[in-house]
Amino acid sequence: MNVIVCVKQVPETTGVKINKDTNTLIREGTKGIINPFDMYAVEEGLRIKEKLGGEVIALSMGPPQADEALREVVSYGVDGAVLLSDRAFAGADTLATSRTLAKGVEKVGEFGLIICGKQAIDGDTAQVGPGIAERLDIPYVAFVRKIREISNHTLVVERMMDDGYDVLEVTLPALITVVKEINEPRMPSLRGKMKAKSVDIPVWGISELGISEEEVGLKGSATQVIKIFTPQRHGNREMLEGSVERQVDQLVSRLDGMKII
């Protein structure tokens, strides 16, 4: 069974810090990393391949430098990768992004399962996975924490909920989004890294996908960002002093005063 994993290159969060004086965002370095949740998707795809055979293909939409992220997933053992990149894709919201990725999936060809990370750590929307499933009209389960059974036709999974988990069975082909708990991603291999250096990663734009400019990027988006600002932070940091007892007493009286407790 072929598995398609969707990956996104995101800015490394550790590089994002707040300047305490000006309350603005400082982004150190421009290093792009693979969205951490997508690594669990890649790992799960590789495990399914080891069990059922077939190939794992990685798909990403992004600027040309997202090629790096795809090469990196090849080093972990993914068989092939495709980058969807076009100036026309810029400014896409989740609707336009899922439309574009769904077109990419169709062009990649036959598959049994699509796996996405639960969400990307830059946007945190968790909407692209379900959007792709909807476009392709296939069943979908979000927040999968465990694959209990998988065959070439059906899949039984545990979906993480706020108060526990649900067990669901879906027919294949399907799409799942995965949470961290599902597995522990492997390390890359040396042979994988060597392959990653030379592998051909095709780049598909609007003409390759056969999609119009109206459907993608900002033009194909339903939402628009109209304002970006830094949030108000608690500027009232207070270090309590004195013995443990004194510090605790001060804390309790402060919290009491604020009607927090």
Partner: peptide, 11 residues
């Protein structure tokens, strides 16, 4: 290739 070995081992 040697750089790759170092990088992977370091990771």
């Amino acid at each position: 290739d040697q750089k790759m070995i170092k990088e992977l081992s370091r990771q």
